[in-house]
């Protein structure tokens, strides 16, 4: 049984699986593990794909991903992005500074921008190399995250309060962009679309319900229509949003380390796959033995949950490779 069949069995509640899948979020770590800089990883799909496949093989992971940084779509919308060698790419300008900017903002063609095209090419490269045997996770920015990337976090969050009309218009354009980018990645071979809407944990349930939830649901429904699944990633504590997140229809929900998996499973329903949620600081700082132990304990404590074992968020660049191997080993030893 290949990795894609294993994932499908997990998703479809078939009983062939006797354990959990392992799929941590890797970006800077994967780049360094393969001897490349973060800048190379984020700007060259061949390097990103090669780094992720190497990490998958070295750490016995069950999926690969196209995640790199938040600014693919932002670049396509017109922002200038710089690539420091060993840091997250920087967005150098805000595309949105006024309601007029929102009105005149055009949703770009994802095939005509270098950064969005690079990710699409990455999906094609995975398909070519992995021949459909490993689940490939594409990546898009969720509507609120993209709006914040374009306008600035504080500015966008205040716009939600002060100018709902302009906010809705911008969020609609971000939603359209998300669908367009998801479509291109599914066509290029992605089985799952990861949707990062990191900032949502910082808004209250009413604001999430009024501005974000229905747009996330629209994107997820659209991706389902393409025959792919969706993994929703929101950084931080989303406990207050869980009942509404259930309504989005996400197939996989990433939960950060602040969220109780049991509470999340109860709120999201046991059909939803949870992905998480060991604190990445512990994985970075503890000993190999400790990481093995805490991963095993985590799995034992959540045996009744449909789970993909991961850290609560990205594996840090400074995490010792031995610790990630220990995490992976603990997952396999539970089979």
């Amino acid at each position: 049984m290949n990795k894609k069949q294993q994932f499908e069995d997990l998703a479809n509640n078939r009983n062939s699986l006797a354990g959990n899948l392992f799929s941590p979020i890797l970006m800077h770590f994967a780049a360094r593990h393969s001897g490349k800089t973060y800048a190379e990883f984020a700007s060259n799909y061949k390097i990103l794909v090669e780094a992720n496949i190497r990490a998958m093989e070295d750490f016995d992971m069950d999926m690969v991903s196209l995640i790199s940084d938040p600014y693919r779509e932002t670049a396509a919308f017109g922002a200038k992005i710089e690539f420091p060698a060993e840091a997250v790419p920087k967005c150098m300008n805000k595309v949105i500074g006024s309601p007029d900017d929102i009105r005149s903002l055009a949703v770009p063609d994802v095939y005509r921008n270098e950064r969005t095209l690079d990710r699409i090419r990455g999906a094609e490269e995975y398909s070519r190399i992995l021949k459909g045997e490993v689940p490939v996770i594409g990546w898009i920015e969720g509507p609120l995250a993209e709006a914040c990337d374009l306008a600035g976090v504080s500015e966008m969050l205040m716009m939600l309060m002060m100018d709902p009309g302009s906010s809705n218009l911008l969020l609609d354009k971000c939603t359209e962009m998300a669908k367009s980018f998801a479509l291109a990645q599914v066509r290029a071979g992605c089985d799952i679309i990861g949707m990062g809407d990191a900032v949502c944990s910082q808004v209250d349930p009413d604001t999430y319900g009024s501005f974000v939830k229905d747009r996330q649901r629209e994107i997820i429904s659209f991706v389902h229509g393409l025959g792919a699944r969706v993994k929703l990633h929101i950084c931080g504590d989303i406990t207050h949003l869980l009942p509404q997140i259930r309504e989005t229809g996400a197939d996989i929900v990433d939960i950060d380390w602040q969220v109780s998996p049991k509470k999340a499973a109860a709120a999201l329903g046991h059909e939803t796959i949870l992905c998480g949620n060991i604190n990445p600081v512990l994985i970075q700082d503890k000993t190999e033995e400790d990481v093995y132990g805490l991963t095993g304990k985590f799995i034992q404590e959540h045996k009744d949950i449909k789970l993909i074992v991961s850290a609560g968020c990205e594996i840090t660049v400074n995490t010792p490779a031995a610790n990630l191997k220990a995490m992976s080993g603990a997952v396999r030893d539970q089979w």
């Binding site: 205040m158 808004v203 209250d204």
Partner: peptide, 14 residues
């Protein structure tokens, strides 16, 4: 106490 979130704090600060 999670009775308000970041958007509301930003408005208060303004």
């Amino acid at each position: 106490e999670n009775k308000i979130f970041v958007p509301q704090v930003l408005m208060s600060a303004k």
